[in-house]
Amino acid sequence: MKHEVTSLNTKKTIAASLKKFMEKKPLSKITVSEIVADCGINRKTFYYHFEDIQALLKWMLEQEAIEVVKNFDLLLDHEEAINFVIDYVEQNKHILNCAYDSMGRDELKRFFYNDLYGIMHSIVNHLEDILGTCVTSDYKDFVCDFYTEALAGTLINLLKNKQPYDKQKLIDYISITLKSSLPAILNADMNQKQ
């Protein structure tokens, strides 16, 4: 257990260093040498924990946002989870924009995709239980992919948006869309099978 705690603390230190450098320059200009010197560790330690800077960035994003969202019961607390994600994007706009500028829209969306897909999949599974429905696996995959793309795209649009927006209205729109459309979609698929 002690090794796991030490390893996690080392990863957090390395991530904090990456964040610090991302405040000053583009991701593509940050080197492993700079990070290890800043952390007071050797290269071997860095590579023990991360394959490269991209893997470090992915881990950092997952730890700070997506992993926390997974702890919400999204069927009951989805508005709180949406609020958390929007706050995270607002508070880390510079870092996320740095990642976006370095990797591009599609690559940044890919970072969010797997975790958001897992969240959507658990929501759909839970709704199936509540509604007493059972959709085909290929349709479930389609629905999860559809909503994952929409949510990831919305997050990235929020990140790149220079205009002020009404945060509560955005949360309400996402919430209304999920609450009203998902049950209707799952029931519609069930009705088509009959």
Rank of each mutant, 00 (worst) to 15 (best):
V85S: 02
A152F: 08
A81C: 09
Y139H: 05
Y165N: 04
K160V: 15
L61C: 11
C134H: 15
H121A: 03
D87Y: 11
V85Y: 11
D138S: 00
I174L: 15
D77E: 15
K93F: 04
N97G: 03
A99S: 14
L96F: 04
H121E: 12
I86Q: 14
I130H: 05
D115I: 00
K160Y: 01
N83A: 12
I95M: 11
S122A: 10
D77A: 05
G118R: 01
V69G: 03
D73P: 07
L170W: 10
N157R: 05
I171A: 07
N125Y: 12
I86E: 10
D77M: 09
Y165K: 04
V69P: 03
I86K: 06
D106I: 07
V89S: 07
I66N: 11
Y147Q: 09
K109S: 09
D77P: 05
H94Y: 12
S122K: 14
R110Q: 15
D73E: 14
T136Y: 12
L108D: 03
L158M: 03
A81S: 15
R105S: 12
D129W: 10
N114M: 07
N114G: 12
K70E: 14
L170D: 10
Y117P: 03
L155E: 00
Y139A: 01
D141Q: 03
H94T: 15
D129K: 10
I119M: 11
V143A: 14
A65P: 01
V85E: 11
I95F: 09
L116T: 09
